[in-house]
Design a protein around this nucleic acid. Structure first.
Length: 169
DNA sequence: GCCAACGTTGGC
DNA sequence: GCCAACGTTGGC
């Protein structure tokens, strides 16, 4: 199995990396995604153990705030069935759920947040999907070299990278 | 709050 | 299937 790498956006005022880190099992269902392209990537392209850059968006200093991994197979997003939820989708049925998600588990803290401005200026990240003009997708692909480089910028220690890799092996 | 860039909706 | 109108995202 080829390991892939992803960048997931989250608004820290809604659910920050620290919120995930302090969650039970450091795991959460990545619910509320209501964009077909993002859904398709979760449903079709993600595999348990894939690496995740946890990105803070729509906040004073947007940037990479933590490291996580894909922690489940895809399954239906429960919020689509809940009339009380802001993510309720009246057109979705339990027999034919429209929205699928995966669980995400925090794996390592960053030594420092890597701000978007810094990612932008980095010649090694010229092709990063996040930096492409007008890109608003909340589920993005990251290349292996980009992943390694951003972890280095974030000061994620070699030891914790080894721990992450060991768990995936 | 502004606004560019996209996505979705719905009339035709 | 076209496309205008509208909604959302998210950096600034």
């Amino acid at each position: 199995m080829i390991q892939r790498f992803w960048l997931l956006k989250s608004e820290p005022q809604v659910f920050s990396f620290n919120d995930l880190w302090t969650s039970k099992g450091r795991v959460t269902p990545w619910d509320g995604i209501r964009n077909y392209q993002a859904r398709n990537r979760m449903r079709d392209d993600m595999q348990v153990g894939d690496g995740v850059l946890y990105y803070h968006s729509n906040c004073p200093t947007p940037g990479v705030a933590g490291v996580a991994e894909i922690a489940s197979e895809p399954y239906p997003d429960a919020t689509q069935f809940d009339p009380e939820s802001k993510y309720f989708d009246p057109k979705s049925t339990r027999k034919a759920p429209r929205w699928t998600l995966v669980d995400v588990r925090a794996t390592a803290r960053v030594e420092r947040l890597v701000p978007l401005t810094e990612l932008r200026e980095d010649p090694l990240l010229m092709d990063l999907e996040l930096l492409r003009r007008g890109n608003r997708l909340s589920v993005q692909g990251v290349g292996r070299a980009e992943w390694t480089h951003i972890l280095a910028l974030a000061g994620v220690s070699k030891a914790s990278q080894r721990r992450i890799r060991a768990r995936k092996a």
